[in-house]
Design a protein around this nucleic acid. Structure first.
Length: 338
DNA sequence: GTTCTAGAAC
DNA sequence: GTTCTAGAAC
């Protein structure tokens, strides 16, 4: 039977500083956005019902009762359009949001949303899930047939649907691409661990640094140069420090260069492994990798990498030890609020 | 890679 | 009692 798939245009309200996951704006359905756990806004100046937002039929979304868009103050209960490129501030020039559109495949009769139990949460503004897989997590493909009792014996799990193959799918998706040329493509990390976090991937299929040889030297240099260009183009005015590097033992297949700002201000940074993978020798500086390939013809990694991920949390700016992730995050604020 | 949650740590 | 981590499941 032919597979029937409808493409839906979904609209997302995206917090510019990554403080929380994007909020889905369903078509012609209103979503309340304001002071709530979802938005992580605790500011009393922000109402719980700061604005009602919905996707309209066009290339914009509609809101009632926001404070300002692009610094133009909006009156109470005035309906306004928010278009791509415009910045919405929920209150007093704070809490910046933009909108993004995305195509989403939808099989009729089978909702794109998985039901998930959530303990006593009646909040209508539930965080929506991204439907396209970037760095792993979500189903890259929709089911065309409901699950049956008997297992599909031929369905080898680990081929292309497995989460570790997610980058291969994302890099091909034009909507994910921030930059591309003949050799490489750059995408935003789906779960950014800082305000800016990109991945530079070669089109050539290179499973990991273990497969890299001197033949790839120019490619590695190009990936580095492209990473620096993306920083200049998209974060040039941010004044943030960046690092470019590879994880010693990556979880995702396909060589990818991390380009990450050093604020580490992101709700997706949640545990010790996240922190230590960017702030110990687990993070292999791009330039060091290039030098090693030039000198030795391949990349070798020292023993004991998995253990590095369990090291105590230490601030990368002032070396102070912090006892927990929440306390580390609180500590980091004093380095980026300058 | 993320999510979920039991139970350790506070 | 609540916060937080870490390991299993995906």
């Amino acid at each position: 039977a032919p597979e029937c798939v409808i493409m839906m245009r979904v609209c997302w309200l995206v917090r510019q500083d990554n403080r929380h996951q994007r909020i889905k704006l369903p078509h012609l359905e209103t979503v309340m956005v304001g002071r709530s756990p979802e938005t992580k806004i605790a500011d009393k100046k922000c109402s719980r019902q700061q604005g009602n937002w919905s996707q309209d039929c066009g290339d914009y979304c509609v809101g009632v009762n926001p404070t300002s868009i692009d610094s133009v103050i909006i009156g109470k209960d005035q309906e306004v359009k928010l278009q791509p490129g415009q910045v919405l501030y929920l209150v007093n020039e704070l809490y910046p949001y933009i909108i993004e559109f995305e195509e989403e495949a939808k099989s009729p009769g089978l909702g794109t949303h998985r039901k998930r139990k959530r303990s006593g949460n009646s909040d209508p503004t539930e965080t929506a899930e991204p439907s396209t897989g970037l760095e792993p997590g979500s189903n890259p493909r929709q089911r065309s047939v409901p699950p049956k009792k008997e297992k599909d014996a031929s369905a080898k799990k680990e081929s292309l649907g497995h989460w570790s193959q997610g980058l291969k799918i994302s890099m091909e998706d034009p909507k994910m691409q921030v930059y591309k040329d003949e050799q490489v493509v750059v995408i935003k990390d789906k779960y950014p661990k800082a305000r800016f976090h990109w991945l530079v991937l070669p089109w050539a299929s290179i499973s990991s640094l273990k497969a890299v040889t001197r033949e790839h030297l120019e490619l590695l240099r190009h990936m580095h140069a492209v990473g620096e260009k993306v920083i200049a183009d998209f974060a040039g005015s941010s004044k943030l420090r960046f690092r470019l590097g590879y994880h010693a033992i990556p979880s995702m297949s396909h060589v990818h260069l991390h380009v990450i700002s050093q604020d580490f201000d992101s709700p997706c940074l949640k545990n010790k492994k996240h922190w230590n993978s960017f702030n110990t020798e687990y993070f292999l500086e791009s330039q060091a990798v290039i030098d090693m390939v030039q000198e030795a013809g391949r990349v070798t990694v020292r023993d004991g990498m998995p253990e590095l991920l369990k090291l105590p949390l230490r601030c990368h700016e002032c070396q102070q030890l912090l006892p927990s992730i929440p306390q580390l995050k609180e500590h980091l604020r004093k380095h980026w609020s300058k």
